[in-house]
């Protein structure tokens, strides 16, 4: 057998230039980051508008500034409603209620859910885990809307009361998510390494566990935020959350639907606003998940 067996003849000159390896320019990734930033900016603008609706409106949401059923125009951007109130102004003021009641719901959900999740996840299968698990299941078995109805019956109408009830319902999902993440993180070698380095349980939790698991929680929060807005809107629509003349979006949609045929904007525009905000939040949730390595 010949001693040289492997031969690579001089490569024919290839027309294609060889791509340089390892160049940065992960453009797709950067694009997603940029998209996320744009979405977060939009969200920030919404927060400002929700905090200070007077800044972005010229009319009072409760004053009869125009004729009834004026279609959208330069003066009344979203038109006027059945008694001549500026719909744009009402939508912006309604945003405040919808937005902050949903925020309250999510806050209750995140805080309660995280506490329950961490407590049960630290010792899976332990007594605490089992008790909290049963409680979570019990709450899960009750539809969140039913829970909200019960709360409203007991404590009176209002978006914020509904929100707390919805938040308690949402906490179950957060608890499950956080519990799973905490259990998963316990098997991470660097978490055990930190423990063998002498780090106490709190230090391990704050420094190693939370930073490695908060991402899915954040993304889930954005999604639940949108769902909470829908839930609160539905309750008001059904006549359980806010009551007229409140400009809460569910109330606006319910009030406008009678006139849908000859004044579509009164119901459709608040509906579109709600859809847009929920889509924005879901998109943020999606992008946050995508941007995770």
């Amino acid at each position: 057998m010949t001693d040289t067996l492997i031969g690579a003849p001089p490569a024919p000159p290839s027309g294609k230039p060889t791509p340089t390896p390892g160049k940065p320019a992960p453009r797709a990734r950067r694009r997603r980051f940029r998209e996320l930033h744009v979405h977060l900016l939009l969200l920030a603008a919404l927060v400002v508008a929700a905090l200070l609706p007077e800044l972005v409106t010229r009319h009072d949401p409760f004053e009869l500034d125009g004729l009834p059923f004026v279609p959208p125009n330069g003066e009344f951007w979203f038109g006027t409603d059945e008694i001549g109130r500026d719909l744009y102004s009402r939508v912006m003021h309604g945003l405040q209620i919808s937005f902050f009641s949903a925020a309250l719901a999510v806050l209750v959900g995140v805080v309660l859910g995280s506490v329950v999740g961490v407590l049960s996840g630290l010792r899976p299968g332990g007594v605490l885990d089992r008790v909290l698990g049963i409680l979570t299941e019990a709450v899960m078995a009750v539809p969140a809307v039913l829970l909200a109805l019960a709360a409203i019956t007991a404590y009176g109408r209002g978006a914020y009361i509904a929100a707390i009830a919805i938040g308690i319902g949402e906490a179950t999902g957060f608890a499950r998510l956080v519990r799973g993440l905490v259990i998963q993180s316990q098997t991470l070698v660097f978490v055990e390494a930190a423990r063998t380095c002498g780090a106490g349980p709190l230090r391990v939790l704050v420094r190693h566990v939370v930073p490695s698991v908060y991402h899915p929680v954040l993304s889930y929060t954005a999604m639940q935020f949108g769902l909470a807005m829908l839930a609160i809107g539905s309750l008001s629509y059904l006549g359980f959350g806010e009551a007229p003349p409140s400009p809460e979006w569910g109330v606006l949609i319910a009030g406008g639907q009678k006139y849908l045929v000859h004044a579509w904007w009164v119901a459709i525009i608040p509906g579109l606003a709600l859809t847009a905000v929920v889509v924005l939040l879901n998109r943020i949730a999606f992008l946050m998940q995508e941007n995770r390595r």
Binding site: T2, L5, I6, A25, P26
Partner: peptide
């Protein structure tokens, strides 16, 4: 690895100037 003196009939697989790239996002 210069051109082979191996008997061509003796060769089962012949690979020449093989370049394989991986696309990572937009880097290659």
């Amino acid at each position: 690895t210069a051109p082979a003196a191996a008997d061509p009939a003796d060769v089962l697989v012949r690979v020449r100037d093989l370049t394989v790239t991986y696309r990572r996002d937009d880097a290659v």
